[in-house]
Each structure stands twice: as structure tokens, then as C-alpha cells.
Design a protein around this nucleic acid. Structure first.
Lengths: 351, 351
DNA sequence: CTGAAAGCGCTTACAG
DNA sequence: CTGAAAGCGCTTACAG
């Protein structure tokens, strides 16, 4: 057979076969956009030639010439398919996939962006790799804010999944409304009669955590009259949680509120080890869930992140950004969180 | 601020500032590659200009001028991130990601390839969408073999995850060695003393299932002297399994061998409903595992598909294909499967 | 309604 | 050791 490094057919080849100019081929391929009009007959001839030759537009050329390539980028600093916490990104990605598919877009995962070190970066050797795609959705936790600021300065079209305040730039995002969810969670436990609330707060100052805090504080303020005490302890790491739970138990709180699911699970275990029953003796709630299955553990009453919807909405916002680049205002959506009622909340014990 | 659609500095701009030609800038940026040599003085001047202007190479232009784009495609007919069976593709993708990252490649998920119908297809409007990438890894079960045959005819560089015999083409693949694994599984149960074996076989004639069958049959033949009987029943669907299990129980088999994990779980449940204990009264093994967690069920003794390795190997094979396109022979690797020893096998009961 | 031409930003032979 | 030029494959004004 021919062993030559298969040369792909170009617009010129198609044009030659269909006896039209490359420009016409371009117009046909792109749904007669660009002010050029082509008769149905001609279009059919072009399509036939395209089919015969197996022509496919060259992404790079398209991008270079200014057109779009219908590729939505997805960038994460960590592995998209982690070995532990396998399902971490799944629901976000499912939403992104669904919406991208709906719009006829492909998804480009920037896995080849590891610079010098082990870490991925947007600017590989000073080059913004994301440019391969029309725009990108940015996911994940452990970010390089410097780089993100640069990305915004570059005016690269991107949307974050989750709220982000990037210095010097107006980031677009599809976020979860952790603030109101946290507030509703406070409503919920106060309605159950809790008057002494213990709070274990992450030391990390991520927007998602700041929002939880704001909502929690607002909720407590609203129930100021009903609540006797709120003890807030900051956990520098997950390892510290167990100790803090013991402290709160000693302070006689009837309900422990954690930032995330893992901390809530730890709280339950620690309390049980102290001989307390959940929820009879101590209630526990989380202001953030874990995407995986709880695998056997007692289902925690928790705020649910609308991951799938966030993914979908991020793609939608990005599409808007691309469709109207003249409008430079940030696109922002804040989506409602649900509360999942597990089995870890009951009325406080009577003494 | 300026609302203009972000215009970035180019090599030409840098060259103008540094008083050199664009070609020199290119050489400097790319570490003096391309046969062009530049004096250190000049290089410094260029770097200084780059810094001043904040120059960043344009990826699309680079790709266009260069050839390959370092994008590995991944194609599946179904959603890559399914709502049910969430983890179905995870391990494969993790392997693909790991190897792609190692090679500085990005991953393109062909999600925008839905043609007329609801289904994805490689040839959208008669056009091979996969050509957006340098080559592709093909995943999944429910395929369009016609289309795949066409893909091979097109000589598009692609590698399947799992063995495939495509009519009229030599498909490259990274497969699992189900045949030897099945054979070893037969060894295993015979060594445990099983003499009357019941087999529930899927009616589906996928390569992966054909391989299991071949291995199972070979294993039984090898132990011909030891085995009293092998009853093989074909299950047209998963729903039929329970009934077939009852038949096998009536026929006094001491071990049931299924093709997949789900059928094995059904077998266990059905047997238990009949008052049999697993494994004391009946042993059950599966020749294929399920990637998710077994969530509470008794761990099945099963063949393990090396998903991660298959994903990695597929990318490696693809890289080989791309690096040496002159060599048109198919690239094929068959990877060992492990056996997971669950708690569903014991010596057969004595009567 | 269609064609010829310029240009996107880069790399890579090819001359000097 | 350096510059001028062609070309990668496309889109997009611009003429006919």
C-alpha cells in the first residue's frame, strides 16, 4: 500500500474536485457563513467532494485564520482522572460533556501542559496552551492564582467552575450558592432545637469556603435570639478535626457543623468513639458533600453541590462569551445547592 | 479599559524591536533549533524584546507550520461520563491521561460528533471528525463496526482498547488476555475440587467474550480427566441469568462461572434465595469484573481487567504508530489480567 | 451568486 | 552567522 505519511486533503483539494474556489468550500463547510452565498446545487457538489476525499478542516488553520474550532477546553491543575477520589471530577465533567455535546463541541483536556516541574501550568514555556481551544472551563482546587490572573489579563475566554476572585480581573464563573445553603442549614438545625452549635472550619481561604462561612455567620445572626452559643474552631488540616470535635463535645455543643463531608465523617466517628450516638446525642452536618458514595457510613446531612449543573452552566457561559466577545463583562451564574437530609440530625438531647 | 478583541504581539513585533528577522526570533524561542544559529548577544536582545512586549507564541500558527499538534483523540460511542455506571471508563481514561501527560499530549474527547440521530459517529456528515487529533484511542462497547472498518480503510491512526477484529482491516489494540485468565480461573476452581461446573455465558459475541469462552473451554479440556461435567447455558440477557442459575443448581453443579460481575452477583443472590450459602454450598466466579466498588456485596472471585494499563498501552501504541507511519503493520499488545480472590470460592460440599 | 487575494503567525528550507 | 521568502490551511473582506 502507500506508506506515505498520509497527507490530508485540504480545502483546495475539495475545491478543485468540486470546481469551486476554496472560499466556497469554506462557506459550505461553515454553513454558508461569512457573507458568501452558495447555491444548493453547488453546495451539494462540494459536500460530495468532501465525502469523497474525506476532507476535514484543520483546526490549527481555522483557529489561526480567526475562525472558531468548536473545541471547549477543560483545564485542571491536577489529574482529571485521579487515582484516589476517582469520582471527584466526574459530575462536573458529565455536565460539561452533556452541554458540549448539545452544542456540537468537542472537549479538549489539557493534559500535555506540564512545564518544567511536575505540575501542570497554563503557560507552558511561556506559551498559553489553552489557545488550542476556543475557550476553556477551569476546574479544580489547587490553583496557581498568579497564572490565572495572567490568563484574565490575556483576555482569554474562560469560565471557572466555582466562584473565583482573581486579583485584577473579572473572572466569569458558574458557582454554587454555598452561602444561602449554609444559611438554610443553620435554619434547619435551629428548627430542630439546637442552641449550642459547634463549628469546625477549614483554615483554607478558598472562595467556596469563604461563602460557607458567610452563610453560616449570617444564619447564626438571624437566629441570634434562639442560639445560646456558637463555638468556632479552625482546623489547619483534616488531621486536626478529631481533636477539635472532642473539644466541642467537652463544651457541650449539641450540633457540629463542618465545612466538608470528610470532616463530618470524622466528627461522627470521634463522637461514637466517645460513646455518643449520632444523632441522638450529637447532631452533625456538613456544608459540603463528597461526590462519591458514602460506602457504608451513616449518611451525613449535608449541602449538595450541583456539580452537573455547574458544568453545564460553565459551558453555556463560555458559549455566550465566545458568541459576543465585544461584551467584556464577566458572566456569572450562582446555582442553588440542595440539602441532603441524612440521618445525622435530631433534636438535641435533654439533660 | 480597552475593549478591543485582544491583539497580541507577534514574532514580527519582537523582531522589529530587537532589530532581527522573525526567523531569528523563532530560532531563539525554540532554543536555536532549525539549523539557524544566533549569537548570544542577539539572543539576549531578542529575549529582552520578548519580555518587554510580553510576547507569547501562537499555538495554532505553530501547529499549522509544524505538522503534528500533540493531541490524542479519545472516541467513545456512548457518553464518556455516564450518569449510571459512573466509573465505567474511569480507569481506562486514567491510564490514557497518565501516558498522554507523560508525552506532553493533550486529550481530545470527541463529544461533538453526534450526527443526525442521537448517536455519536466518527463520520459526521461523511466527514471523519477524528482527524482533529493526530490519532485516536477508541473505547467502549456498543460500536458501529461498519464505521470502524471505514476508519481503518482511511488509514487513520487509531488504537482500540480491547481486542477487535474489524473486517478487512488490521486493527491495532491494547487488549486484556481474557483467554489465559479464564483458563487460570478454571485451574483455580478445579484445584479447589470442583468436578461439576456450571457455566453461564453471554449471548453477545464480542471479542472480549469470545476470548473468555476460548480460555474457559481450553481450561476445561486441560482438566478433562478431573472434571465430571460442564453445563453451559447461554443467557440472552442479564434478566435471564437468575433462571439459568436455578437450572444449574438443580443439575447439582458445585461452581457457577459467569462472564461478568453482574451475572455473578445475580448468581449469588439467586442461590442464597434458594437457601444455599456462598461459598459453602455453591462457589461462584466471574470471568470479568466491574470497575466500581461492590458496595456491600460479598466480594466475588473474578478476573480483573487491567484497565489502567490498557489505557496507557493504547496511547503508547498510538505514539508508535505516529512516530513511524511508514510501518503500516498493526500494533498489538495483550496484557495480563489478574485474578481477584474474593470469598465466593471454597471446596465443593460433600454429600 | 462566485472567484481571486490577502493575511492569520509561525517554521523551515534557502540564499547571502 | 543572519535575512528574505515560501508555505502550513484556513477565513474574510473585496471585487466581479
Amino acid at each position: 500500500m502507500d506508506a506515505q505519511p498520509r497527507k490530508r486533503p485540504t480545502q483546495a483539494d475539495v475545491g478543485r474536485l468540486a470546481r469551486v474556489s476554496p472560499a466556497v468550500v469554506s462557506a459550505v463547510v461553515n454553513g454558508r457563513g461569512g457573507g458568501v452565498r452558495v447555491s444548493d446545487q453547488t453546495a451539494d457538489r462540494v459536500w460530495e467532494a468532501i465525502r469523497q476525499l474525506g476532507y476535514v478542516p484543520n483546526v490549527a488553520a481555522r483557529t489561526l485564520a480567526g475562525g472558531r474550532n468548536n473545541i471547549v477546553g477543560v483545564f485542571t491543575y491536577e489529574a482529571v482522572f485521579p487515582t484516589e477520589a476517582k469520582s471527584f471530577y466526574h459530575d462536573f465533567l458529565a455536565g460539561i460533556e452533556e452541554e458540549a455535546e448539545e452544542r456540537g463541541c468537542h472537549i479538549l483536556l489539557f493534559t500535555g501542559s506540564r512545564g518544567e516541574g511536575r505540575r501542570r501550568s497554563i503557560y507552558k514555556d511561556g506559551v498559553n496552551t489553552l489557545q488550542l481551544a476556543d475557550g476553556a472551563v477551569l476546574l479544580g482546587q489547587d490553583e496557581d492564582r498568579e497564572e490565572l490572573a495572567e490568563l484574565l489579563r490575556d483576555r482569554y475566554p474562560c469560565v471557572f467552575v466555582g466562584r473565583r476572585e482573581i486579583a485584577g480581573g473579572d473572572a466569569s464563573y458558574a458557582a454554587a450558592d454555598y452561602a444561602s445553603a449554609a444559611q438554610r442549614m443553620v435554619d434547619f438545625i435551629v428548627e430542630h432545637g439546637h442552641r449550642r452549635i459547634g463549628r469546625i472550619q477549614s483554615a483554607w481561604r478558598h472562595e467556596a469556603l469563604i461563602d460557607r462561612e458567610a452563610g453560616f455567620v449570617a444564619g447564626c445572626r438571624r437566629h441570634d435570639a434562639a442560639i445560646d452559643s456558637v463555638d468556632t474552631l479552625v482546623a489547619p488540616s483534616g488531621d486536626a478535626v478529631a481533636n477539635l470535635v472532642r473539644i466541642l463535645i467537652d463544651q457541650q455543643v449539641s450540633c457540629v457543623v463542618t465545612d466538608d463531608h470528610a470532616a463530618a465523617v470524622t466528627a461522627c466517628r470521634t463522637a461514637r468513639a466517645r460513646g455518643l450516638r449520632i444523632p441522638e446525642d450529637l447532631s452533625v452536618v456538613a456544608l459540603g458533600d463528597y461526590p462519591g458514595d458514602d460506602a457504608g457510613d451513616q449518611p451525613i446531612t449535608t449541602v449538595i453541590t450541583p456539580r452537573r449543573q455547574m458544568g453545564m452552566e460553565a459551558v453555556r457561559l463560555l458559549a455566550g462569551l465566545l458568541d459576543d466577545p465585544a461584551d467584556t463583562r464577566p458572566r456569572r451564574t450562582v446555582l442553588d445547592c440542595g440539602l441532603r437530609l441524612g440521618t445525622t440530625v435530631a433534636a438535641p438531647p435533654r439533660h
